[in-house]
């Protein structure tokens, strides 16, 4: 395969397959937001320091601002838009709502995705594990209390 300025990729995003041409230098974040109009994923720092752009790629939480879209050929991607099922919030989303984990909401999509990854890999996290798992996601509004509570609660929910 030769070097290309535009790269054709086939990706599955929230269980929908997309065949798109992306610019070699565009990040996954840019393609999600600007090309595919999936604007739920947020851009804040653009340099991997805030987690606002977190999505799951092949089941792993990553900062989509630090991934080239071209690298995503063949990948399975889950974004915040893919968490609801038949119009129902996921238990984690519901917990964010109920436990006062959301203020302005700008960090929320990334925070929810990081928490989703945490709960997939550690279904019943301790408080320390939650704080570690979310330490790459900045929030300027909540002081994190509600967020940690929400994840704790969602972790317990999945028990039953």
């Amino acid at each position: 395969m030769n070097e290309m300025t535009t790269v054709p990729i086939a990706v599955t995003i929230n269980q929908t397959r997309y065949d798109v041409e992306v610019k070699a230098h565009h990040t996954l974040l840019e393609v999600l937001r600007e090309q595919l109009h999936l604007t739920g994923t947020k851009r804040s720092c653009g340099e991997g320091e805030c987690g606002a752009c977190t999505v799951l790629v092949n089941g792993e939480a990553v900062n989509s601002c630090l991934v080239l879209a071209a690298e995503m050929d063949g990948a399975e991607i889950l974004t915040i838009e893919g968490l609801e099922r038949n119009g129902e919030l996921s238990p984690l989303q519901q917990a964010f709502l109920d436990r006062g984990a959301v203020q302005c909401g700008f960090c929320t999509p990334g925070m929810v995705m990081a928490a989703e990854y945490l709960l997939r890999t550690t279904p019943h996290p301790t408080e320390a594990e939650i704080r570690e798992g979310l330490s790459g996601n900045l929030c300027r509004c909540t002081g994190y209390e509600g967020i940690v509570e929400a994840v704790k609660h969602a972790g317990r929910e999945t028990d039953s």
Binding site: G48, G51, T54, E60, A61, V62, N63, A114, G133, S135
Partner: peptide, 9 residues
Amino acid sequence: VGSVQIRNR
């Protein structure tokens, strides 16, 4: 090193 997201990548 970095955050969970960074270490995953």
